[in-house]
Structure formats: C-alpha cells, structure tokens
Nucleic acid binder design. Structure first.
Length: 672
RNA sequence: GCCAACGUAGCACAGCUGGUAGUGCGUCUGAUUUGUAAUCAGACGGUCGGGGGUUCGAGUCCCUCCGUUGGCUCCA
C-alpha cells in the first residue's frame, strides 16, 4: 500500500500500481475534467503509474499548465492530420506557444485553403477519441522509430548528448517524439482552429532548410473557442493600421517609400501633444534641448563604428555629384564604390542611423569640467535604418523614425543616479497614459564572452545600477544574460500589441565605447582628464512606434488632452449656425481643438459621421441652447447631458485637458 | 532578404470555368431644416498595383517588378 497526499491535505491509501487518473477520479469523481496530473509537483500524464508515497494533483484546462498541455497535444494532432493527408511530409517540431500552437513540417508549400482540409482531418481524428499513450524506448529503439526522419534523429542526438532521455507518444497509428505530458485522449482536442500557414527555418537558422509552419488555436470548450475567435476579431478592430486610416492619423504611400510615415494633421496633433508633454518633463529633469541635421559625414560613422558594423541595415551613403560623375567616367562599379567607401578612400554622407555621434560632437565642442556634468542632451531626432522589407509593418516597424532621444554624459559616480532618473521619466509617462501592461528586460553581459569593451569592475557597477533602476519601477522585470550591447548593459521596455506581438519601446543603455572612440574627456577635481560614461536613452523608442502602440492601447479613443479634435459642434438646423460659430470661437479662445458641422444633414447623420473620428465630446446646439447660452453634451458612450452653461463647459473642458485625465469624464454614465 | 496569400474608384467589397467593369459608404449638385448611431434624388469618380507575355479577346491564365498581410530571420 502507498500513501497519496491530495491538494487539500488529505492522505489516502491505495494499492501500489494505481494510476493518477484513478486517484483523481477517486478524489474528485468521474467528471473531474483534468487533462494531466502533477506528482510531487512534476507534470505527468494521467496514465502515470504510482508505486511510492507521493502527492498527486490534477491539472485542469483553465490553468496555465493545463492550457499549455492542451496546445501541445493539439500540435501533435495537427501533425497526425498532416501525415495522413501528406504522407511524404516530415514532421519536425511542434510546441505550444502563448497564443496556441504550431508545427513545422518539411514538405511542399501548402496554401491557406489547404488548412480547411487539415482542420477537418483533425476534427475527424479528435472525434475518434484515440488514446494518447506514452511509450518508453531506449536509445536504439528511439533511433529505429525515427530512422526516416533526419530532423527527429537530430533532436534525439542532441537529447542524448545532453544526457536527457526521451519518449514517444502514440495515438492511433501515429507516434511522435516528445517528453509530454499530453492529454489522455484526442477527444479533448475537439475545439481547435488552424489560423495561418507560414514558413520557418529549421532551428531558426536561415542557412538551414525552410519548413512549412502551421499555426493553430485550441480551447477546452466550444464556448471558449468562440470567445477566443471573437477576441481576435475585436483585436483586429483596434489594430493601429486600421484605426490610423479610419481616424486619419497617418498615411503610408508606396510612392513615398516603404516604411516611411506621413503624419497627417490629426496624427500630428497626437504626436505634438506627446512631445510637448515629454519635453516638459525633460526640462524639469535638467535636460538641454538640441537640434542636429539628418545627415553626417561617413567618417563620423567610421569613428563611431556605425558604418562598418551596421552597414547592412543602413541606407547606402550619399556621394557628392562631381565625385560620382568622375568615378562613373572611370568605369567604377558599385562594388568598387562600396570598397572605396569602406576603406575611406572616398567620402560621402550618411543618413543618420543614430543621433549619438552628433550629440557626442556637441559634448566635444567645449572643454568639459566635472562641474558641468552630467550634461544631458535631448532631441526628437529622426533616424533612418534599412529594415528588411518583410519586417516593415504599420508604424511599429519603419525605415524612418523619430526617437525621443537623449544622451547623458556623466561621471562614473553619477551613473547610478542618472540611470534612475531616466527610468523615472518612463514611469511618469506610462502612469499618465495608463499603460501598466509592460515588462522590463535588463540586458547583462555574458560572463564567458570576451566581446565586451570596458573594465569588468565598471561593468559590475553599471549592471547593478540597471538592476536597481528596474527594481524601482515596481513592474515585472527579468535579467537576461548575454543580452547587453557589447559596449554596456541596458534596460529595455517591452509592450504587446493587440495581436499579442511584443514590441520594444524604450531603452536605457550604458555606453563605455563611444566616449573611448571619440576620446571624450572632462577635467576632474583632481585637475586630471577623465573619461565620461554615456547613457543613451529613448524611453519610448520612437514616436512612430509609440503612437502606434498608443492607438491600440486606447482603441483610438484618446484621452481628451491627446485626441486630435476635442469637441465637435453639431447644429440642429440652419438657424443655429451663428451660435455654433460663437461657441466654437469661445472654445478656440480657450485653446480647445474644435470642429463645427453646420451642414444640412440630419442630426442623427451628423452624429454618426463625427462619431467615427472619436472626439472627446460632441456638442449639440438647437433653440434651447441658443436662447439660454448653454450646450448639450454627448459623450463617446452615447450618454448625454443637457443645458450646461457655455462658460461652465469651457472651464470644465479646459480643466479636463490640463489635468490630462485618462478618459473624458464630463458626462456621467447613464444609469441604464 | 526568405515562404505563403493578397492588390479592382478616397474607403469597404462583388466580379463563376478568359468575352472588354459593378454595389455600398464618402465626394459633388439639387431638394429637405431636421433634437442625439444613416432624409431623398441625380452626378462625378477606375488604362482592375506597374511592366511584359499567351490568346481573336485578359480584372480573370503565365512571367517579372512594386506594395500589403501573416510568419521566419535581423535589430546600434
């Protein structure tokens, strides 16, 4: 007999050889709904046989672990379906991911249309209620099983080399290499949906085979699947690319160029408001505003290292016309030109890929003393990078963007305090915008690598400063070894978009390299020259990406202070035109952004039209309002409030704008 | 850059197996003067992403380039 401890603390006695499934059924009844179990806290199959005293706990599909197992099992089912339909395909790997699962196959490309067929097959297999069995095999057995699949053999070899065993899972005639655990039978996988097909490289290595990757979703119940699909539909509606068009915030024109954002008047207002807000806090924190041009000499970027190291992700250099003509006459090829630029034989200009070299030159333009440090130079600096064409997307990945950039030149002693100051700004602004759902990555050096510049003792101090700064934010943060830049540790801020993709917004980076490369110095209190440390920081990354993320965060319904038009005035009839103009003028005088619609559409029609632009408020003006000098307000929710004295409205609205509240609040929500 | 799908009026879309472009919204012009999510009528608007090819004939088939989307890869 063995003793088994259940989650509620009771200890039951069973005959050795009992399975998890039997224990859980005994404890919770037949309809326990568990997908898998935990024995002494370790995940395992329901079929696990128990021979010793232990604790047993069921895993339900509504837990993090449960949904992960469900997804992983669904990936297996997908592979089984694909293998039945395409016997020539070779399955490779198929893990669970945050939003579902995928499986990679070595096979001829398939189309989205084929997904329907595969999905049908999956449902058919799920309905068969095949038992999912765990089969333990020795090394030779494993190899033999997968002898025709070089990908699986490669995984087996790796596993064995690492000293890990592996197992096989079998359902019907299909078996796959896997550590499990899995659901007990395929009927659990009834509610899956294949979402897309794309490609991936074997082991993420672009020099290796290209595989067909199929993505899917799975949920424990029909309702949950429906809810997930509905959520995805809703998420699409707040996609900044769609809203950007609907709300007339920005435009991308292929004739202008891929990944180049044209900020239209409404979007420009949002950006300007944000920049003003950021600038206000920069002044408070002692930053000095600078402006620098969009280009700089090639030699500058040779010194900084940007040209030699990041050539592939920059726009090609600009060469002077006379020189270009001369070289062309001499029969110079593009290859020759490139080589001559690399070697420094010829000069040219580069669109700046970063603002730091320009700022460094501002620092170096004067003799600096420890008394003037820290020097904090800030600029909304526009930079250009040659992002790969397949990567460009809306406002979140572009080729020209404006960083909310600044460079701090500090002494070694000031470093920790200044890093903290950078973080403070991020906190203020994220708080104001109600962005709580972000995570922080602290990139540290890999202690085994030699690629890092600078003294290890200074690195230790800088890394500690970054950790402390991250800690001060009070949100989830993680240390990531080996993720530091070669020139210093960094702190990154990462947010998710509506589709669940992660984007890096801001970054704070310590840099020992550039001061060295440009031989920057300051005179210390000891009368000697010292090397400053630089901090690069762009808390929001770029205005483009940040605004893109903000559009989605607010679903286009910006707070009153940010929204392009704060108040739309709508007249009931022609008689009210003059009063509408009077109200508009009064609001404009108070610095409110107003739009007037005194056209001859019906009131309902005008409201419908203006709703699409999501102003904070609509003001409806008719006889009553005109006579009493009042306004009727309509909120985005459709809630209304009538007969507010004009002057009171102007004052309240002004106050709401100035206080930068997260959402319009002048109209109380109705009871109904 | 790689794989797949897609690209038809300002926007959202229809156009079956090839027979020479349609709908709704928007815009404009009339009429209507309206009280909180679509008043009515008319008009304008497209060399069907660009180029090349097959064909008597191409929005539809083929090639190529550009762009978009979803991934992969990369990211100072």
């Amino acid at each position: 007999m063995i003793h088994i401890t259940l989650p509620d603390g009771t200890v039951n006695e069973y005959a050795a050889g009992i399975t998890c499934a039997e224990v859980i059924t005994d404890a919770l009844g037949k309809k326990h709904g568990c997908l898998a179990a935990k024995v002494n806290g370790v995940e395992c199959d329901m079929s696990r046989v128990l021979n010793e005293n232990c604790s047993v706990e069921g895993i339900l599909s509504d837990s993090e672990e449960g949904i992960h197992i469900l997804r992983h099992s669904a990936a297996h089912l997908l592979a089984q379906a694909v293998m039945e339909l395409y016997p020539g395909a070779l399955p490779t790997i198929g893990p669970a991911i945050d939003r579902g699962f995928y499986y990679d196959f070595a096979m001829d490309p398939i189309t989205e249309a084929d997904l329907k067929t595969i999905q049908k097959k999956m449902h058919e297999l799920a309905r068969k209620n095949l038992t999912v069995e765990r089969v333990e095999l020795d090394q030779e057995g494993l190899r033999e099983h997968f002898i025709n699949n070089p990908y699986k053999i490669e995984i087996i070899d790796d596993k064995l080399e690492a000293g890990d065993g592996s197992t096989v899972y079998k359902q019907g005639d299909w078996y796959d290499l896997c550590l499990g655990p899995h659901v007990p039978n395929t009927s659990r996988l009834m509610f899956s949906r294949l979402t897309s097909v794309s490609s991936a490289y074997w082991r993420g290595d672009q020099d290796r085979e290209q595989l067909v990757r199929i993505y899917g979703l799975v949920e424990p119940t029909k309702e949950a699947l429906k809810a997930t699909l509905h959520r995805m539909e809703e998420a699409k509606k707040r996609d900044h690319r769609k809203l950007g068009k609907d709300l007339q915030l920005f435009h991308i024109d292929e004739e202008v160029g891929q990944g180049l954002i044209l900020w239209t008047p409404r979007g420009a207002i949002v950006r300007q408001e944000l920049q003003d807000f950021i600038s206000y806090h920069l002044r408070r924190q002692g930053y000095a505003q600078v402006f620098t041009p969009h280009i700089g000499k090639l030699d500058l970027y040779r010194t900084s290292g940007h040209f030699p190291y990041y050539q592939d992700s920059q726009y090609p250099p600009l060469v002077e016309r006379d020189l270009m003509n001369k070289l062309a006459d001499e029969g110079c090829t593009c290859g020759d030109l490139s080589n001559m630029m690399k070697s420094g034989e010829i000069e040219g200009y580069m669109l700046k890929p970063m603002n730091c070299p320009h700022h460094v030159k501002i620092y170096a333009s004067q003799a600096r003393s420890y008394r003037n440090l820290p020097l904090r130079l800030a600029e909304f600096g526009t930079v250009y990078r040659w992002e790969q064409s397949g990567e460009i997307s809306g406002m979140t990945r572009v080729r020209g963007f404006t960083q909310d950039d600044a460079h701090l030149f500090v002494t070694e002693e000031q470093l920790a305090q200044e890093v903290l100051g950078c973080i403070e700004l991020v906190q203020i602004i994220f708080d104001k915008l109600g962005m709580e759902d972000y995570r922080v990555r602290v990139g540290l050096r890999d202690p085994d690598s030699t690629k890092y510049v600078g003294d290890p003792a200074r690195w230790d101090k800088a890394e500690e400063a970054c950790r402390a700064a991250a800690e001060s934010l009070g949100v989830a943060w993680s240390e990531e070894e080996g993720e530091a830049a070669f020139y210093g540790p960094k702190i990154d801020f990462v947010v998710k978009d509506v589709i669940g993709r992660e984007w890096q917004l801001g970054t704070v980076q310590v840099d020992y390299n550039l001061p060295e490369r440009f031989d920057l110095t300051y005179k210390g209190s000891d009368g000697e020259l010292h090397r400053p440390v630089m901090i690069h920081r762009a808390p929001f990354g770029s205005m483009e990406r940040f605004c893109g993320v903000l559009i989605e965060h607010f679903a286009g319904r910006f707070p009153t202070w940010l929204t392009p038009t704060q108040c739309h005035i709508i007249t009931i009839s022609e008689k009210h035109k003059a009063y509408a103009q009077q109200v508009a003028d009064r609001l404009k005088d108070a610095g409110v952004r107003v739009e007037v619609d005194d056209g001859d559409d019906t009131v309902g029609k005008k409201i419908r039209t203006h709703r699409k632009l999501q102003p904070a408020y609509m003001v409806i003006l008719g006889d009553g309002e005109m006579e009493q000098e009042t306004v009727s307000l309509r909120a985005r929710s459709g809630d209304q409030i009538a007969d507010i004295p004009l002057e009171q409205f102007v004052a309240d609205l002004r106050n709401e704008i100035d206080s930068k509240v997260s959402q319009p609040a002048l109209v109380p929500p109705s009871e109904a």
